[in-house]
């Protein structure tokens, strides 16, 4: 399955949406309108977009502590997302979640997650529910190269293969050359293999490694794995090499010249007519301005809301 013109433009538009939204988040955090700094997705946009373009509303994703790309690509409402990041009452989770724990069940975005690898076992549960319901929905589980080592992730790969769950594991490997953690070059590697997808075989599922900054490569690989899961043939482990261009929590915050060659948006832009590119950027900027205005205008939650939702009232 290769990219046609219309799909290319659609993917490009969503990638621009994510980048524009995150640039706004970066600025609003500096201005104190968003109360805490957190990991951004800059440089990884092609992965969430190239995956989610194949997903239906009834499919679910489990995300990470770098979640905005995953959430936006899955179709989360930008206004409610921005309001949540500002800790406002009108946010998806009324200011309780923030970036790390955002849930939007209306589009199957079942959780950003503050714990590295924390969402992966839960996402197998979404896939289990899909299998039981028989509606041919699938789940996508996102994690990074750091998360890939967690016991819970390894256990879930095994479980998903044993139960032939309709799930696609998407590992975004953001240390493709030098092994880093939060921007720091670590003194021992955290992986002793070059490709995390090598592990797939040991658990009994197909696995492959792809170029995460090439939207066409992501689109093709994800399409194949998602189709496979949807027709009941079980899980796949996809690894996408990516470069985080900005937004590391420690260390430098600006991409350098060399890193710009890995910018998925710059790369795909070459396929987009200039007029359309300008149109897309203007449209998306306008949408995001609406989201910012919505968030800023929204009230803070009332203090007593701090105590709500600990337990649910009986139905």
């Amino acid at each position: 399955m290769s990219l046609n013109e219309a799909k290319t433009a659609e993917i490009y538009r969503i990638m621009v949406r994510i980048r524009t939204f995150e640039n706004a988040v970066r600025r609003l955090t500096k201005e104190g309108k968003i109360p805490a700094r957190f990991g951004l997705y800059t440089g990884q946009e092609a992965v969430a977009t190239g995956v989610s373009i194949h997903l239906r509303k009834g499919d679910q994703i489990g995300s990470t502590h770098r979640p905005l790309g995953h959430l936006i690509a899955k179709g989360c409402d930008l206004n409610k997302l921005m309001a949540e990041l500002m800790g406002k009452e009108s946010g998806f989770n009324h200011g309780k979640a923030g970036p790390y724990h955002t849930f939007d069940p209306s589009v199957g975005a079942l959780g950003a997650n503050g714990i590295v690898g924390g969402s992966v076992p839960m996402t197998a549960g979404y896939a289990l529910a899909n299998q039981l319901k028989g509606e041919r929905n699938i789940a996508v589980s996102y994690f990074g190269e750091g998360g890939s080592n967690q016991g819970g992730v390894q256990e879930t790969l095994n479980l998903a293969a044993c139960w032939q769950l309709p799930i696609v594991f998407v590992c975004e490997n953001s240390s493709p050359e030098v092994q880093r953690m939060l921007g720091h070059e670590i003194d021992y590697p955290q992986l002793s293999i070059d490709n995390i997808s090598l592990r797939a075989k040991n658990y009994g599922m197909p696995g492959s490694t792809h170029t995460g900054w090439d939207a066409a490569d992501v689109y093709k690989a994800a399409g194949k794995a998602i189709r496979r899961a949807r027709i009941g043939k079980g899980p796949t482990l996809l690894e996408f090499k990516v470069h985080q261009l900005e937004g590391n929590l420690e260390g430098r915050l600006e991409a350098n010249e060399k890193e710009r060659q890995w910018d998925p948006i710059d790369l795909l832009k070459q396929m987009i007519p200039q007029k359309l590119d300008e149109q897309i950027k203007a449209d998306e900027a306008a949408k995001i301005q609406i989201a910012i205005d919505f968030g800023l205008r929204s009230p803070e939650p009332a203090s007593e809301q701090a105590y709500s939702c600990v337990f649910k009232e009986a139905d």
Binding site: G95, K96, H101, P301, Q305, A306, V310
Partner: peptide
């Protein structure tokens, strides 16, 4: 109080 700590600075401060 036995409440998972919320993100909103206002709610966090409340607790």
């Amino acid at each position: 109080p036995n409440v998972p700590l919320p993100f909103s600075p206002k709610l966090e401060k409340e607790l």
